[in-house]
Lab assay of single mutants.
Amino acid sequence: MSGNGNAAATAEENSPKMRVIRVGTRKSQLARIQTDSVVATLKASYPGLQFEIIAMSTTGDKILDTALSKIGEKSLFTKELEHALEKNEVDLVVHSLKDLPTVLPPGFTIGAICKRENPHDAVVFHPKFVGKTLETLPEKSVVGTSSLRRAAQLQRKFPHLEFRSIRGNLNTRLRKLDEQQEFSAIILATAGLQRMGWHNRVGQILHPEECMYAVGQGALGVEVRAKDQDILDLVGVLHDPETLLRCIAERAFLRHLEGGCSVPVAVHTAMKDGQLYLTGGVWSLDGSDSIQETMQATIHVPAQHEDGPEDDPQLVGITARNIPRGPQLAAQNLGISLANLLLSKGAKNILDVARQLNDAH
């Protein structure tokens, strides 16, 4: 009898209710805020589980004197976190989706994509230029951005401005803007500013005609071990179906173009009346040469937790077992079709030249 009692006690200790789920994140304040929001949602869904947040620095956090596009290494903000995932030191990792490459290392998958916040870019102005827009900034004003995508589009749109690289986390960039006289304004992701509670610093939100956004911008991705079915089931509740389908289309477009950090590629997606609209573009580094096109596809946005595919093969690095396969494939095909259209119009040449120029500098 006593033996059975011990077995029952052991089973209770090993039951999922007692389990601590370890969540990996970057150390920056924004990353911690984003991770806290994901953990809060998981806690609400699984009140019996405990969650421990483990923060670590990544290569991208450490190399702050070089433009991201020049470092010449993929997975700048993800490699150390993936290493911890691989060694079973954490069970899942919360990322900004735009930091996750469209091809993940073997053994990993994006197990959830959370509801997207505003994906557009924002302009934050130096205190002396508050009330201005990019259009009304004085001639030769210097605007800071760490992104080739932003610089290429904005140089084309605002030729009277000069664009220079600015690195560091959000706090560091804002301090550089406010305390030094080098920059009249800087460009940042609206979602990051909003998550930090800095709505009052948003001086201008850039519309798609001015600057399309990065693939996955404004959404959070939760990376897990691809074979860890328990954790895949656990994080599945975080999937937002519309965000998922938009981001599958965007990531398929980028992957098929073979774009990345070192080339200016941008997108804009919208879901309306059962249609998914995808606009994508590529630019030369100075913005003088560009190709942009829009395509659409009829896609039914499923309700969360309709029964999805059981075999769960990944699409552009994403596993969404609780979302039907048909809409996911339709979104992926839309991204591939748009990429093929741009490639047929000469996108590869623009991107190759951009890559060579970026590598040469």
Rank of each mutant, 00 (worst) to 15 (best):
G218W: 04
G281K: 02
P324Y: 07
L92S: 05
A266Q: 02
T319D: 07
K140G: 11
E89T: 10
T58I: 08
D312V: 06
G107M: 13
F51V: 13
H239F: 01
F77T: 02
G346R: 10
D233T: 09
K132I: 11
C114P: 10
L244N: 05
P264S: 15
N171L: 12
R167G: 10
H305P: 02
G308F: 00
K157G: 12
L134Y: 00
E86P: 01
L193F: 06
A270F: 14
V316F: 13
A191H: 01
V235M: 12
V267Q: 01
I187C: 06
Q328N: 02
V202H: 03
P119S: 11
P208K: 04
L276T: 01
H160V: 05
S290T: 02
G317E: 00
T269V: 00
G259D: 11
A297N: 00
L64C: 11
M196S: 05
H256P: 05
K115I: 08
I53G: 05
L315F: 15
A249T: 15
S45F: 06
A331P: 02
I350R: 08
L278E: 02
Q229F: 13
S141D: 07
K345M: 14
L351M: 14
Q314F: 13
D307S: 08
L357S: 15
I291H: 10
G287W: 03
L238T: 02
L49M: 09
K98L: 02
E73M: 08
V202W: 05
K115E: 10
A320Q: 03
F158I: 12
G335L: 01
N118D: 15
V90Y: 06
F129D: 08
K348H: 15
L49W: 08
Q275F: 06
S146V: 08
I186W: 01
A347D: 07
Q292L: 13
P105H: 10
T190V: 11
V267R: 01
V267I: 05
I323V: 11
A122M: 08
T319V: 01
D312W: 05
G107Q: 13
G168V: 01
V124M: 13
M271V: 08
A55Q: 10
E179R: 09
D61G: 03
E139R: 08
A189E: 03
L329Q: 15
G60T: 07
K272T: 09
E135Y: 09
T190G: 11
P47E: 00
A112H: 02
D312M: 08
S75R: 11
F77E: 01
H268S: 04
E86G: 08
P127H: 05
E86S: 12
T172C: 08
T59W: 04
Q204S: 15
R355T: 05
F51Y: 04
S337P: 03
T294S: 11
P241A: 06
Q181S: 10
A44R: 13
S146N: 14
C247Y: 11
N340Y: 11
G287N: 03
V222E: 06
C261M: 01
C211S: 11
E209N: 02
T279I: 13
T319Y: 14
E80N: 06
T66W: 09
V202L: 11
P302N: 00
P159Q: 10
S165G: 13
F129I: 08
A151N: 12
N88K: 14
P327S: 05
G335P: 01
F129A: 07
L257V: 14
P47N: 13
L238K: 02
S96V: 00
L193M: 14
